[in-house]
């Protein structure tokens, strides 16, 4: 079957085929999910040098563990569980090991100092500016770990509060308050852009 055929298959069927050791289906599944996972880790991980490794590891766990996934409908939340677990693993590692500074990273890149509103452009154009992207990433990365994972799973992954509660081993009430507080902080941090 051609590659085009796999590109058109809905996600759920792709998962089913991959579970039956259809390698081309698995290849397509990885291709579909990798950008999403990479982008997610780029907000979750404070260390840029870890993003590629974390993405690779998440995809590897996905490929290996897929056979054990009973209900293909829960694929998305299952995959996010993998991402969340890797994020927590990374946090534990960071807490244990001394800090490593990347040579790729530009110094002071993350500190923006004062926010100066850009009044020249219309909001829509401004939203496209890469400076705002950096600001958003920076603000998200500065959130406390629990807030960060909750708001990312909600806004970027579209998980329900219940799914987030399950992935982060907490209650729906806690998720609700974490997301609200994360939003409050982000709004505050990005007040000149909102």
């Amino acid at each position: 079957m051609s590659k085009m055929f796999y590109k058109k298959i809905p996600l759920e069927e792709l998962v089913l085929l991959s579970q039956k050791s259809d390698y081309r289906a698995l290849e397509e599944l990885i291709k579909r999910e990798q950008k999403n996972i990479f982008a997610t880790f780029s907000y979750l991980s404070k260390k840029r040098e870890n993003i590629a490794d974390l993405t690779q590891e998440a995809l590897m766990r996905m490929a290996k563990g897929l056979a054990a996934l009973r209900n293909p409908k829960t694929f998305k939340s299952w995959l996010n569980q993998i991402v969340t677990n890797l994020f927590y693993d990374e946090l534990r590692k960071i807490n244990r090991s001394p800090q490593v500074i990347s040579i790729d990273e530009e110094p002071h890149e993350e500190s923006f100092g004062r926010q100066i509103p850009d009044t020249k452009h219309k909001p829509a154009e401004r939203a496209m500016s890469s400076e705002l992207d950096k600001m958003i990433k920076n603000e998200i990365q500065n959130l406390p770990d629990h807030f960060r994972i909750a708001i990312i799973l909600r806004e970027l992954q579209g998980l329900s509060y219940e799914e987030i509660a399950e992935a982060t081993h907490t209650t729906v009430g806690t998720v609700k308050s974490r997301i609200a507080r994360a939003r409050g902080r982000l709004q505050d941090g990005l007040r000149h852009y909102i």
């Binding site: 806004e155 970027l156 909102i194």
Partner: peptide
């Protein structure tokens, strides 16, 4: 906020 986060993502 939701919108600019989604754009950024």
């Amino acid at each position: 906020l939701k919108k600019i986060m989604q754009n950024s993502f």
